[in-house]
Design a protein around this nucleic acid. Structure first.
Lengths: 300, 300
DNA sequence: AAAATGTTTTTTCACGATAAAAGACATTAC
DNA sequence: GTAATGTCTTTTATCGTGAAAAAACATTTT
């Protein structure tokens, strides 16, 4: 099978949405920019759009002939990259069933189960190893360390260290720095979400990530910025997994964020420290409370 | 070529050294333990030792017939794993010639140059990416971020944060913890090295790593412990690369370590903090001074 | 001549295949 | 009956291969 053309399919779907908005499409390089793909892929997309009667394509002229219908889209599941597919399968195994610490991970078995080649699974595991949940035995299998209470504590310890430092750096940024505009924009979004929390509480996790990434970036330290990937990954699956009191939790968090934003805007280090600490404390509590009792015992 | 038998060759060489010490060899499982390889590999080793007349092997009896000669050993270069070979080649390129930030890294070219398959290079780059020196463009090439002054500063910032915390945790460890014995042992080694610094100064880097890893382990945090891999890697190549005033630098560092050890043994948090800060400061200076002027400019 | 399109080359991504190494099972020795 | 040896099976490490996607080069259009 060698390589799926998910990049093409995903870009095609995104391009279909562009069609609605105008009578004709821009130049090939411009489309490539817009979709984040190469011209080669853009041309494949245009070819198919011509074939299916969506556009008339003659050199620079790309006239839209009709609005896209649902049949025009490629199925969502065909637009995922292999890495995403593997990650999902792996995380399902890791979180859902009894994935005990110490259990060994078999590349071949995983590959067969997911229906992909071993190389892709190997590469995924190598990339995944930086999250601290698995470990390799040289020339041999991987060992699962488990999503335990210990893991959550170690993760939050680093997170707190990094975020306190980043928040302090943020507050010290000059008044004319672009981040203050970004922060204002995020504040508006937070306010809007706070007002409609009853219906939109599930949109919080995405906003949460953007907010914290903005703060971490102020550290100007690649290790701190990169570490947020670990946190984001854990929180992403944690949100999917643990829906208990989601609305209430998010409501509290939004308010904490608003207080945190106000503190940052005051540029008073002491206030920032207090607001940051408060939010981090409740974030830690939320994460810890979501770890099933059974897993706490596996620590040994 | 599929897979080199470097594991076997390396274990064989190490096994030859064991031969000197006794009249006969232990059981197969025991040998496997000793050499860190499976019984399958042990049996291959024993087979060859029998063939070359080094031992007489009959079931449980493995009698040493003669002392190993230099021809019995496999050449050193055949005992390296592919990953080690790739890392060395890559680091040579990165440090030696003008490896400028922003430069793109080509998997295929690297693989051809080193004479290995692309898969191994890909896997190496993925593993290597956690050191923060390279970054992947999705579906495209890797980008070199360069061993710049900015990199060194970001690295040392985290290092200092982590080590101060670990050192404090270390000092707070109970008196009966095993680490105090390890620390005593390291102190003795430091004293010995200090006395013979004129001739043995190049042995410091190995001792340095063991000392700092011991301290970091006291954090009981996998992210802190794992981060030392980044530091160790950089220092490893830094030592190879920059030999200026090596003796003097190491002499100073040994003394700082001894003061640091004394502070830890005092278990006084304030003293630990001072000694740790002092050492970290000079370590940072050493690293920064080794970065060529040309590279500082590439920061932009 | 700058920017687009058309064409060709190169690189990345993913697979199946194969030897090395690990691991499991069966048998023998103490 | 425990622990070793002997044998067989499975898994890991690595390569070559081929399609997808990117990138480079050549040609046309405005």
């Amino acid at each position: 099978m060698s390589k799926s053309n998910n990049v093409y399919k995903d870009a095609f779907n995104r391009c279909l949405r562009l069609l609605d908005e105008s009578r004709s499409l821009p130049s090939e390089p411009e489309l490539g920019m817009l979709l984040g793909v190469s011209r080669t892929t853009v041309r494949s997309i245009l070819s198919r759009m011509e074939e299916t009667g969506l556009i008339a394509w003659n050199k620079r002229n790309k006239t839209v002939l009709r609005a896209p219908r649902s049949e025009d889209f490629f199925p969502e599941e065909e637009t995922d990259s292999l890495a995403e597919i593997i990650e999902r399968s792996f995380m399902r195994r890791l979180l859902a069933e009894g994935a005990e610490a110490g259990m060994q991970i078999n590349e071949l078995e995983l590959a067969r189960e997911i229906g992909v080649g071993t190389t892709s699974v190997r590469e995924f595991l190598i990339r995944f190893s930086r999250f601290g949940l698995i470990e390799k035995r040289r020339n041999s299998h991987w060992v699962l360390k488990g999503f335990t209470r210990a893991f959550a504590l170690e993760l939050t310890e680093i997170r707190e260290m990094f975020e306190l430092r980043s928040a302090a750096a943020f507050a010290a940024l000059p008044q004319d720095s672009a981040v203050w505009v970004d922060l204002d924009r995020l504040e508006v979004e937070h306010r809007r979400l706070a007002n409609e929390i009853a219906t939109r509480f599930n949109e919080f996790s995405e906003l949460d990530e953007r907010f914290h990434r903005l703060i971490h970036r102020a550290s100007h330290n690649r290790f701190i910025v990169d570490f947020y990937d670990v946190i984001a990954m854990i929180f992403h699956y944690h949100y999917q997994w643990n829906k208990a009191q989601e609305r209430q939790r998010n409501e509290v968090a939004v308010q904490e964020h608003l207080a945190y934003i106000a503190a940052l805007k005051s540029r008073d280090p002491a206030k920032v420290d207090i607001a940051c600490r408060k939010h981090l404390k409740s974030a830690r509590q939320t994460l810890l409370s979501s770890i099933p009792e059974g897993r706490q015992a596996q620590l040994a």
